[in-house]
Design a protein around this nucleic acid. Structure first.
Lengths: 206, 206
DNA sequence: ATCTTTGTGATACGACCGTACCATGATGGT
DNA sequence: ACCATCATGGTACGGTCGTATCACAAAGAT
């Protein structure tokens, strides 16, 4: 037998080529041949490791979601040890904004997948729909924790506030993506809304 | 010469056929032949009234934006005469949520166009990018007016709050579109955030 | 009445796309 | 040493897509 290649690793390489090519051309325009060229392999190999384009797309989506989850987790961790709920939430929301090339690509492709999911039921059944829910759980948990410590403005519902913040972050991200808004403006808007949700800590009340 | 058809009217009919077909198949999957079939005309006619697919897409986008602006304006008008800034804003944001077939299609296609605009500079240069800005101006103006009447929570910046609300509405809309969230939940989240921005009016404080 | 322009249809063309098929090194098991 | 099998390349096929071409009917202009 030949080299006995690690299939999982090769599939990951090809999936990352897909992500790069799709980030450049748009997901709608990327073909099997583009992915092959980007990965530096033959068209046949892409077919070999993924039997069909649909399988490739699905795997690419899962890979993208995983990488992004790791990114967010790393950013949250980098926010320091127990830095308070607000800082964690701010880091989490900021990590989702398309401020650099990686998060731009992520936002771009994730939105592309979401649009495709409207008309493609195989995509709609994919768990990437649920990922934002888990993010919402995380944020809601942090808000609840802050509420118990009396750091939240009275009347704020953690669940609704979490959903609103994440939706806002997603919407602002799209605005940044299409060049309608700067990244700084987006983070500013988020910070302003966090000010509405959290009580001013210590002396820096507005 | 033949019938002397009204070109503008015919182009509008074809553009609406495009919108219907794209709403059903997804913008990425709709072709000239689909549009022709949907409009009940021959492929040649679509080419005749729009020289290229790109022109058709651009015109379709403008048509979509116009129809949507009219829809929002009608909803705001239907909110009653001088119903207060909050009611107007709530009507405006609610009109943008994909609650019925028309607004679902709008949200779906508008997001599709936004995704395409990331990689297509002809689309990126299109004024539909600016329309949200004018909506933001409107909301910011209403918030400023409410602030002058002392109806806003102190410390709320009208501009940032308007941007945040519109982004939240867009993000929630996407959530509703992909079936991740119900329309009722989305309006509830919006209402909750309006509660954070506006002071409780009269006796119904929380 | 003829001519010229406008609207409409049918069809052909070239390109590309996803997939399938065929061939063939390479290599580990026996 | 041989062979079954994995990995890989090349290439062809059927379909579809946007666009171009050819044809022609209808009707105002002269």
């Amino acid at each position: 037998m030949p080299k006995r290649v690690d299939h999982a690793e090769r599939r990951t390489e090809i999936a990352e080529a897909l992500v790069r090519a799709a980030g450049r051309l748009g997901l709608h325009a990327v073909g099997m041949r583009d992915v092959a060229a980007e990965a530096g392999v033959s068209l046949r190999l892409v077919q070999y490791y993924f039997e069909s384009k649909e399988k490739l797309l699905l795997f690419g989506l899962r890979h993208l979601a995983e990488r992004f989850a790791q990114r967010v987790a790393a950013r949250v961790r980098a926010a320091g040890a127990d830095p308070g709920a607000r800082a964690v939430i701010e880091a989490l929301l900021a990590a989702a904004l398309p401020v650099d090339a990686e998060s731009r690509t992520f936002h771009h492709l994730y939105t592309s997948y979401a649009v495709l999911a409207v008309t493609d039921e195989a995509l709609a059944a994919q768990p990437f729909i649920k990922d934002p829910d888990s993010a919402e759980d995380t944020v809601a948990g942090l808000l609840r924790q802050a509420a118990e410590q009396g750091r939240l403005r009275p009347g704020v519902d953690p669940r609704a506030a979490a959903a609103g913040l994440l939706a806002m972050s997603a919407g602002l991200g799209t605005g940044v993506l299409v060049g309608q808004r700067s990244a700084e403006s987006a983070t500013g808007v988020l910070a302003h809304h966090l000010d509405l949700i959290f009580l001013p800590s210590g002396a820096d009340a507005v």
